[in-house]
Computed example of a mutant assay.
Amino acid sequence: MKLAINGFGRIGRTILRQVLAMPQGSDIELVLINDIAPLATCAYLFKYDSTFGPYAGKVSEGNNALVVDGQSIPMTHSSDLANIDLSGVDVLLDCTGIARTSDVARRGLAAGARKVLISGPSPAAEVTVVLGANEDQLGGAHVVSNASCTTNGLAPLVRVLDDIGGITTGHMTTIHCYTNSQPMVDAPRGDLARSRAGALSMVPTTSSAIHLIDVVLPHLAGRISGAAVRVPTASVSAIDLIVTLDRSLDAETFDKALRDQVSASPVLGWTDMPLVSSDLRARPESLVIAGPETRMVGANQVRVFGWYDNEWGFSARMLDVARLMTAA
């Protein structure tokens, strides 16, 4: 599978780290990176990462290429994919965050790529796919959205809970690390709360996952509400979900059913240890359920708490969904 990355930011760089960590003979070949930043800047930011630490291998600049551990990856610096030849690319991973209109989202196809996978919500996508929730809807779509990091954690959990006891209603709060959509010092934003310094306060705000859960699991549309609290940490977020089940269950039956479903899931994990957020850094699961924080209240209400590395886990799903797209 030949991949190209458009946009070498947080997700693009994390995807490259994961590709490079794969064993020799992997099915993935990264053939091109495109980013508007200079090559020297891209090499520096890949080598020195404030979240995941310095890359352990050697990183240097080649002739229009990023050279990592002796492997030369061609690099272009165009703001318009029409100037780049993507012939032979199976999936273009669009990690720019700007592929929100059809003409932008489909530029990779016009440049020669067979398919495009967008690293975030996009109304221009033909379908939004979350592994563990609705991958059966992928079909032969050429422009696909990988949803959001929170949706990737929430949707598989919601599907599992719905399978166990049916969901009447629910409310999700994501306790989310700050992102570059927030200022480092107080500065004007459309959302007044998000105009405050992101590393100094807990900031209540909205989550796109609530709209996306209706898209990914339409039979549950309107049943789950939600919100976000941005907190002063650089990585790893959490989902705190409370749902009312259609069917009454005792605590032991629910616990066994949830553990069994998580064990069978390709994207969910479980821990019985009393972990904190930093313990989950660079975990590849979409969501790691915290056993000590998960419980039934009465016969129908359930509280489930889980951790997710909103960069590493989401990047892992980008690669997983790209594999599905090439097989479709």
Rank of each mutant, 00 (worst) to 15 (best):
D260A: 14
R196G: 05
D272V: 01
I242M: 13
I213Q: 13
A110P: 01
V91W: 14
G166F: 02
R281Q: 13
I33F: 13
C95H: 06
A234W: 11
S148C: 02
D191R: 03
D136S: 14
N300C: 05
E285K: 01
R13P: 01
A99T: 05
S278A: 10
I167V: 07
R107K: 12
A21S: 15
H219D: 05
G269Q: 01
C149M: 08
L86A: 03
A197M: 01
D136F: 14
N152T: 07
A141L: 14
I224L: 15
D163E: 13
V68K: 02
V68T: 11
V243H: 00
I33H: 10
A316G: 04
S119E: 05
R13K: 13
L20V: 03
L319M: 11
S235P: 01
G88P: 10
T76N: 05
G132I: 10
I33R: 13
V144A: 04
L217Q: 11
S60T: 11
T233A: 06
G170F: 06
G7C: 02
L86E: 09
D272T: 05
L258A: 08
N64T: 08
T179K: 08
T169V: 00
P74T: 06
G153L: 03
V129L: 11
A290E: 08
T271D: 01
S60Q: 09
V229D: 06
L157I: 03
S122Q: 03
L3P: 12
V229L: 12
A147M: 06
R107G: 04
V59N: 07
T253H: 04
R223L: 08
A227R: 09
G53C: 05
M1I: 14
G53V: 09
E126P: 10
H176R: 11
D260F: 11
R106Q: 13
T96W: 14
G108W: 05
N134P: 04
G12I: 08
M202I: 00
Y48L: 09
G153N: 01
S102C: 01
G190V: 06
L275N: 07
D27G: 15
D94A: 15
P266D: 06
K2N: 11
T326L: 09
A238K: 03
L157D: 04
I210C: 07
A124R: 09
